[in-house]
């Protein structure tokens, strides 16, 4: 197992979240979130369901609106200004639990759509880049099929390639392996590990603790909408300090 925990992390700040709060109606989902992510950092966010981990990373590209505090991505402050939101979204790639590929477009069209329309890349160049990333996720031969014809693992790898085609500086993963059959999880994780080794800034919500040990340089544990504990993976798994973390780890690693 390659030891990736020593990989380069620059001092440049990618994301700053300051005193962020969010409510769904009167339900307080995120409480006083403070988080600074450096360029090149690989962060795994875990916690019991309903703890707000998905909501947190969905706030970063404004799929969810936060009501208090500030989020700054690559120096752009996330506000109600649509221009800022679109700028951040084109810098931040995202992979979803259910892939969310566009079923009416081929794999290649899925990958070239955003570069052509958002980045105004010439079609030819966009296709070349798409093929490059499809090769990287090891499914160039499926380029002309439709998403419905691919297996779950393949679809998720296409979703990763689709995000990469926008040349994002940050990647968000929202439980990318939770909807997959066990035998397909590895192929997706391998792709993500490769991405991490290339120095991509990554925030992953996942329950894959092996992945967290292998590539993360920080693990964040959330419960009831707040960050309960964060540490380097080695320390986090071997010496969890908070009781809630210990309970959580004993539940997911217990068998």
């Amino acid at each position: 197992m390659a030891d990736t925990s020593q990989m380069q992390v620059s001092d440049e700040i990618a994301i700053t979240i300051n005193q962020m709060n969010k409510w769904y109606g009167s339900f307080h989902v995120l409480r006083d979130i403070n988080l600074t992510v450096n360029q090149g950092e690989r962060i795994v966010i875990c916690g019991p369901s309903g703890s707000g981990k998905s909501t947190l990373i969905r706030c970063i590209n404004a799929l969810e609106e936060h009501q208090q505090g500030s989020i700054e991505v690559d120096g752009t402050l996330l506000s109600n200004d649509l221009k800022n939101i679109d700028k951040i979204r084109s810098e931040v790639g995202m992979c979803f639990q259910h892939f969310n590929l566009f079923p009416h477009l081929t794999i290649l069209e899925n990958c070239t759509l955003a570069p052509i329309w958002v980045r105004k890349t010439p079609k030819k160049e966009a296709e070349e880049r798409a093929m490059h990333f499809l090769e990287k996720v090891k499914i160039p031969d499926q380029a002309n099929k439709y998403p419905g014809q691919l297996s779950g693992g393949q679809q998720q790898r296409v979703a990763i390639a689709r995000s990469l085609c926008m040349m994002p500086r940050i990647m968000l993963f929202d439980e990318p392996t939770s909807a997959l059959d066990p035998e397909m999880i590895k192929e997706v994780l391998d792709t993500m590990i490769e991405l991490a080794e290339e120095g991509m800034t990554m925030l992953c919500v996942t329950h894959e603790m092996g992945f967290a040990r292998q590539v993360a340089n920080r693990v964040i544990f959330m419960d009831e909408g707040q960050i309960v504990e964060q540490n380097e993976p080695e320390e986090f798994f071997n010496n969890p300090r908070s009781e809630r973390t210990q309970l959580f780890l004993s539940q997911i690693l217990g068998h």
């Binding site: 799929l63 700028k87 979204r89 931040v92 969310n100 590929l101 955003a114 926008m166």
Partner: peptide, 17 residues
């Protein structure tokens, strides 16, 4: 599915696109 809207948003497509 709501995911289609979210995927389009997350890629930076604006509303008309």
């Amino acid at each position: 599915p709501k995911g289609q809207y979210e995927a389009a948003d997350s890629l930076g497509l604006d509303y008309p696109q």
